[in-house]
């Protein structure tokens, strides 16, 4: 069981530098992007905003896929991926609302306004938050996984609404504005950097959840074999 874990230990040596480079590139590109005509430097919020919004949507989609996977197979592995993506997604979704609100303050002169995309994004954030509240109320791991999976699948209905909100309904949120090539480059670099970082966090979080479950299973094995377990000794883990 653990030999698989040790081979994966090499992963950070490849992934961490790659992610670091991507994030650094994002920083530099955003810093170098030309100032916008009306908003000046404040428009740089936009690069982060679009990037986290994109990762948030991907995370929710991933959650729904993992939810389906769990419902069809009942394997806890799926639930760990689902939970990890929910956590990453919640962070991104929160950042989307915060950066969006900041941007709105500079661009539209208000912190929040009525707009289909703002509303659907808020709904997305509320659903992510509800996911954790729902899970917190259930003790049994499989039951918790099932409930979370079902909510993830239902909540996925909001993802197309968020993406299509600006196209289907007229609002104030821009669809896909014309951009300077330098700005496009900054946006791309920033999106790549954020995605890579979140992917790394996702993998680590998921591994942590896997290990947590393994520890719990080991404890249970010890109990099942008749001994009382007050903690795991080092020898049982090696």
């Amino acid at each position: 069981m653990f030999s698989k874990g040790t081979s994966r230990l090499e992963l950070p040596f490849i992934m961490v530098p790659v992610v670091a480079v991507l994030v650094a590139w994002g920083f530099v590109a955003v810093g170098n992007a030309p100032a916008e005509l009306t908003m000046g430097s404040a428009h740089r919020i936009l690069y982060v905003h679009v990037s986290v919004a994109w990762v948030g949507l991907v995370a929710f989609s991933l959650m729904a896929v993992c939810g389906l996977g769990y419902l069809l197979t009942s394997k806890m592995k799926w639930d760990h991926w689902g939970q990890a993506s929910a956590e990453i997604g919640w962070i991104c979704s929160t950042l989307t609302l915060l950066t969006g609100s900041l941007w709105a303050h500079f661009a539209w002169g208000t912190w929040w306004t009525w707009d289909p995309r703002l509303l659907t994004s808020f709904v997305l954030w509320a659903l992510f938050s509800g996911y954790f509240i729902l899970r917190a109320g259930v003790d049994e791991p499989h039951r918790r996984a099932t409930l979370g999976a079902v909510l993830a699948v239902i909540g996925f209905a909001d993802v197309p609404l968020v993406t299509m909100a600006t196209r289907w309904y007229r609002g104030i949120h821009p669809v896909s504005p014309e951009m300077d090539p330098m700005m496009q480059h900054a946006l791309l670099a920033c999106a790549l950097g954020v995605s890579a970082m979140m992917a790394l966090l996702l993998i680590y979080r998921c591994r942590q959840l896997d290990l947590e479950k393994q520890i719990l299973d080991l404890k249970m094995d010890v109990t099942d074999q008749g001994g009382k377990c007050h903690g795991i000794s080092r020898s049982s883990l090696s």
Partner: peptide, 8 residues
Amino acid sequence: VLLLPLLV
């Protein structure tokens, strides 16, 4: 909490 956002 779960229902209100879904019903928007």
